[in-house]
Design a protein around this nucleic acid. Structure first.
Length: 138
DNA sequence: GCCAACGTTGGC
DNA sequence: GCCAACGTTGGC
């Protein structure tokens, strides 16, 4: 069964434009145990919102998992993992954090509740709602 | 094993 | 630039 996620990146470090340009890109550098567990739970074909933190603060696109968890090549020690993500398409209309926070039905979203978590699950209901807000065409 | 100090992330 | 949240480190 396909699951849904949200991954964050500071656009100064790695932006949606770079993801689109590269096509498939390893998602490395996660150094938080909660986020690591989420990476490990990702399956081929799962989709994730690509969120720009810090600058932008909005969901800008959708990516798909094309390789499941493997040891993070950028980790010098510890058993951190990476997955490979492929750009699917940009959000026709980016969904801002402000819009998410303004909607009471999204108050349970981990993005709102745990602002520091960089990889988090999104429930199917929330996924659908966020897609509608972003004018996502399925 | 507890807890204070400190560092990092991310929103404002 | 500030501050809240929270993870990590180190003394006891």
């Amino acid at each position: 069964m396909t699951q849904f996620w949200l991954v964050k990146s500071e656009p100064e470090a790695f932006s949606w434009d770079q993801q689109v340009e590269n096509g498939v890109e390893p998602w490395t550098g996660v150094r938080n145990h909660g986020a690591k567990l989420n990476l490990k739970a990702m399956k081929l074909g799962d989709r994730a919102f690509f969120y720009h933190s810090n600058t932008g603060k909005e969901i800008v696109g959708v990516v798909e998992v094309v390789r499941e968890a493997y040891p993070d090549p950028t980790a010098e020690k510890g058993d951190w993992v990476s997955v490979d993500m492929k750009a699917v398409a940009p959000m026709p209309q980016p969904v801002t954090l402000a819009a998410i926070k303004a909607d009471p039905s999204l108050a349970e979203l981990a993005l709102v509740r745990q602002s520091r978590l960089s990889v988090m699950p999104v429930s199917p209901a929330h996924w659908q709602q966020l897609c509608e807000m972003g004018k996502w065409k399925t």
